[in-house]
Computed example of a mutant assay.
Amino acid sequence: MQNKNKTVIKSMDLLNLFLTHHKLSMNDMVQLSGMPKTSVHRMIGSLSDMGFLHKNKDGYYSLGLLFLQFGNLVAERLDIRHIALAIMEKLRDDIGFAVHLVLRDGEASIYIEKLDTHHPVRLFTKIGKKAPLYAGASSRTILAFMPDSETEAYLAEVELEPIGSGTILGKDELRALLAQTRQTGYSFSRSELEDYTAELSAPIFDHSGQIIAALSIAGLEVQFGEEHIPDLIQKVRSAAAEISLKLGYGGSRV
């Protein structure tokens, strides 16, 4: 906490409550945060005045429209998103699966772009959704190609908790899958983040050869028949390599 403004950090803790709650009363925020009511009341007033929170007529608070403005600016300024979009559209139209672009966000992965399919059944994924680095093909792709020291530090600290019925819960098994991903250049998961779904992912590298993102396709598990997977692997890896090339990557890590 040294050299950090405690009020700012506590205000951020309040805002983080809205990641999992659409709207909250002041009492809700007091209960969930564990902060004194007077402190919460003071911070809510400041956050509302600045446009970070909006109070409706029933007395409940939700995130203010200022976040939409900032969110749009962040999305517009993510060069990789613009570079990848045309390639993602081509891949989606070719294979008919949802296509995702995923970045690392600390000890999680975050979906920054999604192209959905025209199928009536849609996936749980959405832009802004996060997943732990140990769960799901995209997360595991990022974890596999992170610097070894960072990967090992993460594995030493993380507790593997079940999310879907197929979530990897053993660290030895996880390490083996990470090694396999580094060797083959792709990762595949079944029912790790949501039951009955599957995801196939490949790494995207920047001009320095560092992992910068993961490209993935996802759909219902039954759509990933064993006879189709080799062709899907080739297409996802090829699309990811094309994005890497446009980002200035000229090497071959896989």
Rank of each mutant, 00 (worst) to 15 (best):
V102D: 00
I9S: 11
F97A: 01
F18E: 02
S191K: 10
H54F: 14
F188W: 10
M146N: 05
L177M: 13
G251Y: 09
S25P: 09
G64H: 10
I204V: 15
D195R: 05
F224H: 00
L169S: 01
F52W: 15
S187L: 06
D49L: 13
D28L: 08
P162R: 07
L115N: 13
A176F: 04
T117N: 03
I44D: 13
S208I: 14
A202C: 03
S238E: 14
D79L: 11
G209R: 06
L19W: 10
R140K: 15
H54T: 10
E192A: 02
N72S: 10
R253V: 15
F124K: 00
F224I: 00
S46C: 05
P230L: 01
E173Q: 15
A108P: 06
R81S: 08
R140F: 11
D231C: 09
R190N: 07
N56E: 13
F18C: 03
H21R: 09
V102S: 02
D172P: 07
A153E: 15
K130Y: 10
L245Y: 15
F70I: 11
L53Q: 00
T125C: 06
N16Y: 15
H228D: 13
N27D: 12
M88T: 00
K129L: 12
G250H: 11
L24K: 10
A240V: 05
A153R: 15
K4P: 04
Q183K: 12
I83W: 07
A108L: 02
K246C: 04
L232Q: 01
S48H: 14
S191L: 03
G225M: 11
Q180M: 02
S48D: 09
Y249T: 06
K23A: 14
E221G: 03
E152G: 02
R104D: 01
K4D: 10
L200S: 01
K23T: 13
Q31P: 02
L103W: 07
L133G: 06
D79N: 14
L143Q: 05
G64D: 03
S149H: 12
Y196I: 01
F145K: 05
A144Y: 09
A202G: 03
P147C: 05
K126L: 12
S109P: 11
K10I: 09
H82R: 14
A214M: 03
F145W: 12
S216M: 05
R190D: 03
N56C: 09
I112S: 04
M29Y: 07
L193P: 02
L24G: 08
G51P: 03
E89G: 04
E221H: 11
V254G: 01
T151P: 13
L19Y: 11
L103S: 00
P132M: 04
V254R: 00
Y60T: 00
L232P: 01
N56M: 07
S109F: 07
L115Y: 11
H118A: 08
F67E: 01
K37C: 12
M50W: 14
L53T: 03
L91S: 00
D148H: 12
S187V: 01
V99L: 00
M88N: 05
A98T: 14
H118D: 11
L17Q: 13
P230I: 00
S208Q: 15
K171H: 09
V222T: 06
K246I: 01
I233R: 01
K90W: 03
M35C: 05
Q210H: 10
K23M: 13
G248A: 04
I229C: 08
H100V: 13
D94C: 10
Q31F: 13
S25C: 03
